[in-house]
Amino acid sequence: MEVSTLIQTIANSLVQSSVYATLAIGLALGFGVMKMANFAHGEFYMLGAYVVFFLYTTWGLPYPLAVLAALPIIALVGMLTERLIFRPTKGNVLAGFMATAGLTFILQVLVGQAWGVGLMRAIETPYKGAWEVAGAFIGWQRLIIIPVAILMITALWYFLYHVKIGKALRACAQDPEVAALQGISINKITLTAMAIAGGYAGIAGALMAPIQPVTPYMGHDIIIICFIIVIVGGMESIAGAVLASFILGFIHTFMTTLYDSIVAIMAGVALMALILIVKPEGLLGKVKA
């Protein structure tokens, strides 16, 4: 591998890992609080991309504003999901998960009917040009994802460790019954967790919209990787999710560069299978997957 290719690949890995991390922490958060996984998390990501398509490409809003708008919009979708699906199926791990599988269908069809099934939406990047390092060109559009992701992860960390509701969220994840005894409303906390998970997935999709072809099915490819990340990191562990995002991000990008995207996913699955056999609770997890 040439130096320039190596640098290029490392840069791409960092970008990819950042996107994975913003998605995976949302999944881990939801899993911690509700003990439920959201199958439609990938569709939240897809919706985030469509928010940018709609507000930026169609309406002509400035790109950063469109990205920011994805946060409350998809957070709202997340909250609706909690209210309409997770809360009524509380206590039945399987039902909540399967019902969100149904939700993926609904969101895909609705978006497809609104903006065309399988039609690829090319969104023009607002940040043209690239940063040249040792013969490698890293597009600004990709590069901005890294600081944004770092900012988002830090914000979540601050929220969980220094804000009262954030601490209550951790308390709920550790012992919901005792948390309720302290006067913490579990329903409000799960609503908060789903809002964050949704908003973060929305931003991730919004950031990737100019880079990736935007289709109603774009969430499908990424959700499997996110699930692998959460298992490898250790279901409820946010730090584990971030760590695993970087491991998977690098494996995935390098494998794609060296071989192809199919081998890349296969390598991820193989890693997951290995983790499940050797350490079922994941790298930083406490709970058995």
Partner: peptide
């Protein structure tokens, strides 16, 4: 709450 510090545990008691 096992993964929280003593102080955080006490703070949770005063949640409301």
């Amino acid at each position: 709450f096992p993964q929280m510090t003593v102080l955080e545990n006490l703070e949770m008691g005063a949640y409301l």
